[in-house]
Design a protein around this nucleic acid. Structure first.
Length: 213
DNA sequence: CGGACGATTCTCT
DNA sequence: GAGAATCGTCCGG
């Protein structure tokens, strides 16, 4: 194997399957459930890091008053959400980066925010980046996980389904039961009126790595 | 070009 | 659990 996926598979010593482009064109709520337990990999040679997704939030472009696509329309920042699913939306809030997976067909600007990961690979590198030994503090928050995985705006628009992308999402056959998915209201969107209380935050029950309990 | 503010985090209490 | 830090975006002049 000569591509980045193959190189990572050797490093990781476990079989993986990259999520294909078609995965990101399904219904956004289904994608959100299926992203839980999957692995985000940032390939950077000796600084490669990876984490398991344990918490996500859904943002529906057409109607959702919390969604950047709904609030601002197509701007330089939000543009990528209007492309086809499978691309990375990296943006800034306060001084921190956050990372979303774009879903749906072109001009269907849904996105799924990755809110928490469990550190899985390159943990020492993550500790150095975050300047802490505490594993919980390597993944429990959308800005925090971007620091750990070194996700910056250089990765804006990158194709998460390409076997040669330095940022991709894959399946490593992590097993959990559907009834371990908890659905609650989203965090930090108190301006979103009737969408404040919709249960569009999904996380894995009993995971110590989620951002807020 | 300036003002307002946020898909947050950290550091106290 | 409250308050400050702090800066990129967006929008109105």
């Amino acid at each position: 194997m000569n591509n980045i996926i193959g190189i990572f598979e050797n490093l990781y010593q476990r079989n993986i399957t990259i999520l294909p482009k078609t995965f990101y064109l399904q219904d956004t709520f289904n994608i959100a459930e299926d992203l839980l337990g999957k692995l985000i990999v940032h390939y950077e040679g000796h600084n490669t890091t990876a984490g398991r997704i344990v918490e996500v939030e859904i943002y529906i472009g057409k109607c959702d008053k919390a969604s950047h696509a709904y609030r601002f329309g197509k701007t330089k920042r939000t543009m990528v959400m209007f492309e086809r699913g499978g691309l990375a939306y990296v943006f800034n809030v306060h001084k921190y980066n956050q990372f979303c997976v774009v879903t749906g067909e072109k001009d269907h600007p849904d996105a799924i925010l990755i809110r928490a990961i469990e550190p899985v690979y390159g943990v020492e590198i993550m500790k150095n980046r975050r300047k802490t030994e505490n594993l919980i503090k390597l993944g429990s928050g959308p800005g925090i996980l971007c620091q750990s995985l070194n996700i910056t705006k250089k990765l804006y628009g990158i194709d998460l389904a390409s076997p040669n992308s330095e940022l991709f999402i894959c399946d490593d056959y992590f097993i959990f039961k559907k009834d371990e998915i908890i659905k609650t209201k989203r965090i930090g969107i108190n301006y979103a009126q009737e969408y404040i209380h919709v249960p569009w935050r999904y996380y894995l029950k009993n995971s110590p790595f989620v951002s807020v309990l």
